[in-house]
């Protein structure tokens, strides 16, 4: 009998290719609350897990345009209206001189803004029950760890365990709140 404190099930794979194949099969089997912990970014994992494209590039684009408008506006206002100065006979609205600052402001707004939004979104958009920290330290060394959360609508302990074993996973085990092995 499995304790109610069970958080989910994990099993690991030894190669990125096995992990990709397993991810596709978990996706096709209809599981939604699952994740892969890998030692390095595995190319093609998003498609294999059935994840949608990120919406964060739109944030980056909007922030970049805001950065451009802010920098151009600030410089134009300061150099033409608020404190016009004659620099070597150049016109007050010396737009070529504004370009480097506009470019930098665009990068600054877009990059920092995207990073902040990505962190917030990462907290929000993750699966309801990620694996406890340090549950499988192999994921930072050489293991590709599949995690299926107990919150998954299709969660049925015996069935999930048999399924993950059928994928060829090693070290399949249930994980409880403490991150220990309770199977």
């Amino acid at each position: 009998m499995m304790p109610t404190s069970t958080r989910g099930l994990l099993g690991h794979f030894c190669t990125p290719d096995e992990a990709l194949a397993a991810a596709a099969r978990v996706r096709d089997a209809g599981y939604r609350h699952f994740d892969f912990l890998t030692p390095f970014p595995v190319h093609g994992m998003e498609e294999a897990m059935g994840q949608k494209r990120s919406w964060i590039p739109w944030v980056t684009g909007v922030l970049a345009i805001c950065g451009i408008l802010f920098a151009l506006g600030l410089q134009y206002w300061a150099m033409v209206f608020d404190w016009p100065l004659n620099h070597g006979g150049k016109p007050f609205n010396a737009w070529p001189a504004f370009i480097p600052i506009t470019f930098e402001a665009m990068v600054f707004w877009a990059a920092l803004g995207s990073a902040v939004v990505a962190v917030i979104a990462g907290k929000r958009d993750t699966i309801p029950q990620p694996p406890p920290l340090l549950v499988e330290t192999g994921a930072t060394v050489d293991r590709f760890v599949l995690w299926i959360s107990a919150t998954d609508p299709r969660w049925e302990p015996a069935e999930v365990e048999a399924f993950v074993r059928s994928l060829g996973a090693n070290g399949v085990r249930f994980v409880d709140v403490s991150g220990g092995n309770d199977a």
Binding site: G88, G89, P96, A97, I99, P100
Partner: peptide
């Protein structure tokens, strides 16, 4: 291209 233009425009 802009780098080349800007420096020449600025130094005048």
């Amino acid at each position: 291209y802009f780098c080349q233009y800007l420096l020449i425009w600025y130094a005048n």
